[in-house]
Design a protein around this nucleic acid. Sequence first.
DNA 1: TTATTTGGTTTATTTTATAAACTACTTTAT
DNA 2: ATAAAGTAGTTTATAAAATAAACCAAATAA
Lengths: 93, 93
Amino acid sequence: MFRELNPLLHSELRLAVMSILIGVECADFVFLRKQTGATAGNLSVQIDKLQRAGYIEVEKTYRGKMPCTICRMTDTGREAFAEYVDALKSYIG
Amino acid sequence: MFRELNPLLHSELRLAVMSILIGVECADFVFLRKQTGATAGNLSVQIDKLQRAGYIEVEKTYRGKMPCTICRMTDTGREAFAEYVDALKSYIG
DNA sequence: TTATTTGGTTTATTTTATAAACTACTTTAT
DNA sequence: ATAAAGTAGTTTATAAAATAAACCAAATAA
């Protein structure tokens, strides 16, 4: 009856990050922070979890002299997101 | 951009309970347990939280000699659920 | 009558989310 | 040149949540 909700995606902030990344080629830390309104610490932790799960790739570069963390979704991430959205529908119709 | 997700509803089990209750007049503990596959302890705790939030009403009766806990959604619950579902759409399109 | 099952609740433990504090710089002002 | 303030994060500590394990009271079955 109810499909299981991937706990890695069933988190407001991680879901927001994935929701952004699914629509763009990539996004940096600052952009994600502004779009989500999250604190830097929270965002840092959640990005890490998504990366460890293989849902996103994280590239550490510099923009000028400033550090810049770029995130992009992986195919695995896309699949997981699609499945999560589908599973959600078993709850909210 | 992203609407806030009511943390009381953003929980797999509580969401499942609400999802069941929105479709029926009422449902008892045993039914909810079977439909959700949750443990009794977990279900007990989550029903309590939904009740305290005013999202469901809980009636303690007996079916024959056996205790029977009947749950039904309140108007407040219906509103909260509708808003939650709506907010979710800002994430999953 | 003594298990076993049913229908739960309570308490303890683990996991998760979040905030606070910190690091390593860069930029601006003095 | 130096101090103060800002940027881009990470790490660590704390609060909150989910879950499991243990328990209880009554009913039923052996």
